[in-house]
Amino acid sequence: MTKVSRNTWTRILQDRYLYLLGLPGMLYFVVFKYAPMWGIVISFQDYSPYTGLWKSEWVGFEHFVRFFSNPDFFMLFRNTMAINLLNLLFFFPAPILLALLLNELRTGLFKKSVQSIIYLPHFLSWVIIAGISFQMLSQTEGVVNKLIVSLGYPSVEFLTNENTFWVLLTLQSMWKEAGWGTIIFLAAMASVDPQLYEASKIDGAGPFRLAWHVTLPGIRNVITILLILRLGDIMDVGFEQVYLMMNGAVSSVAEVFDTYVFRVGISQGQFSYSTAIGLFKSVVGLILVILANKSAKRLGEEGVY
């Protein structure tokens, strides 16, 4: 035992500069991420900001019981999952595909302009995007519906249709963030060794094969990490977007955990209830991340940890 630990100490001592390098970052995480973690405890309390943590009453699992016994729980769960799965299927790969396409272009004015343009929507807030969506899609004012009507067809309810609401959200997210998402993948592609391309080209590989056999494996690591981290957010749906697009006609498919927390918890000053729901979401996320990381390791990937 002592031998092992001495060995460990020697190794730590050897890497002292490495630890020093990470020290500011570790300090940051201790102070700003772990020091406030006590806040999670209030999900077992009846917390009020004025009374504070120490004097608030303990209620055990009351908030969790209330949450799980809510008749709408299943609806919230289903909507959250559906929106997230659609996002995983279509929105997650979109920036990868886009980055592959961009990567094929030789550096030039066209590539630079396309890149700059597709980043732009990221800077528009959801309020503006919701407004623009309305200008385009509404039945009263929308450009698209005006066009449809002028062609002699009846107007289409894009914004108040339960059946297409999830698709609408996914398309909006793609429009807003797919371009911005390419940044990280382009950066990863820039690190792929050009000699690999040369070698494959000599072997007679076309652009598709190059993308499949060289580029994608080169950025596999980054994709895996992003995917695993994304799974951790499986219970989160971009609150602002859903909140702004939701209306009475679609709320049975639009209501998700985040909008519920806002309406029932935050706006009513129920800090403990909101935190309890947050804790539930985190635990689900944690389980998924652990499972995903295990699978990734089994497939020979580096994984997240």
Binding site: T8, G22, P36, F271, L286, Y305
Partner: peptide
């Protein structure tokens, strides 16, 4: 090669998943 690497990574991962909310952050 770093000793404690996995533990530290895991601890950092947890901060992504668990967030304590507005008031505790404010108090810090």
């Amino acid at each position: 090669r770093l000793v404690g690497r996995r533990v530290i990574t895991l601890l950092i991962l947890l901060t992504i998943l668990f967030s304590p909310g507005m008031i505790p952050n404010y108090l810090v």
